[in-house]
Write a protein that binds this DNA or RNA. Structure first.
Lengths: 150, 150
DNA sequence: ATCATTGCAAAAGCTTTGCATAAGA
DNA sequence: TCTTATGCAAAGCTTTTGCAATGAT
């Protein structure tokens, strides 16, 4: 059994919830393919494989995966939520092109230090962070050369 | 005239748009009071002052303010958009309490360097960044002492 | 046998849009 | 005068929720 399933099942047991095929289908799909994903894409992908899982179940499952640290929300500022699995992946941030939406991932280890400083200074227990940097990639800069400031 | 109005009017002229009382009312209200705001709060606040501005106009005005660099979107991960004025404010980031929603602002000048590194490494023209750190403040930690991991 | 979970469809936000009217330039 | 901008209401989207049926423990 893969570890993410193990983690989820431990979480389920500990919380007194129930282990269902739907939840495991969703989790498997998330970890099988995607880097980033959104609800609609995940739903269609499952549907395409013959799964009967409903969107409602996806919406109800994602908070559980977030709560046990398997995935996290990512803000791409496009009107709906995106997610990514974080279990088994180095902590990273996103550089996003405002033109074409391309995402580059990059690591920035010093943010760990920053978290510790903030925890100390503001007496917070830090749970995580999200850093999005945005701009224009070379291709989009060339394409939109006429656009002001781009 | 305040400088943010000046900036906006220059922008309006340059883009061939029109200067309207509604847009200026909205802009004035944003810079008069708020640190952070959302559409609904802004609307109610204007309404409370007797303004007739509609939400639709607010929704149509905000992208203009963003485009000319006066405000920016802020992601508080609570299902709708928040904004903050950036003109005249030092660049800063947010430390948010997942319990009570309190926001601490902090500066992190090294992100400027990071932007430059990313620009060089990925050949991007960087337009900005957003860093949100989240966790639990002291009060919420005490309040929810029974909650796992908190 | 319980009670959490599911699927469906309806409801609930927030945001966008169509259209007639108002009003800058 | 010409076109953009506004207000209103309707439409659009994503996400949440009520409920009866299903199914895990």
């Amino acid at each position: 059994m893969t570890s993410e399933l193990q983690i989820f099942q431990d979480y389920i047991r500990q919380r007194g919830l129930r282990r269902t095929p739907e939840r495991e289908e969703i989790l498997r799909e998330i970890f099988e393919v995607h880097g980033h994903f959104d609800v609609d894409g995940l739903y269609l992908q499952l549907k395409g494989k013959g799964s009967k899982v409903s969107k409602a179940s996806i919406y109800r499952a994602l908070p559980l995966f977030i709560d046990c640290g398997l995935i996290r929300e990512v803000d791409f500022s496009d009107g709906h939520w995106h997610y990514e699995h974080i279990y088994g992946h180095a902590d990273h941030n996103h550089l996003r092109c405002l033109g074409c939406g391309e995402i580059q991932e990059f690591e920035e280890p010093t943010l760990q230090l920053l978290e510790e400083q903030l925890a100390h200074k503001y007496h917070y227990q830090i749970k995580g962070h999200q850093l999005q940097v945005y701009g224009y990639c070379t291709a989009c800069r060339l394409k939109d050369w006429g656009r002001q400031g781009v």
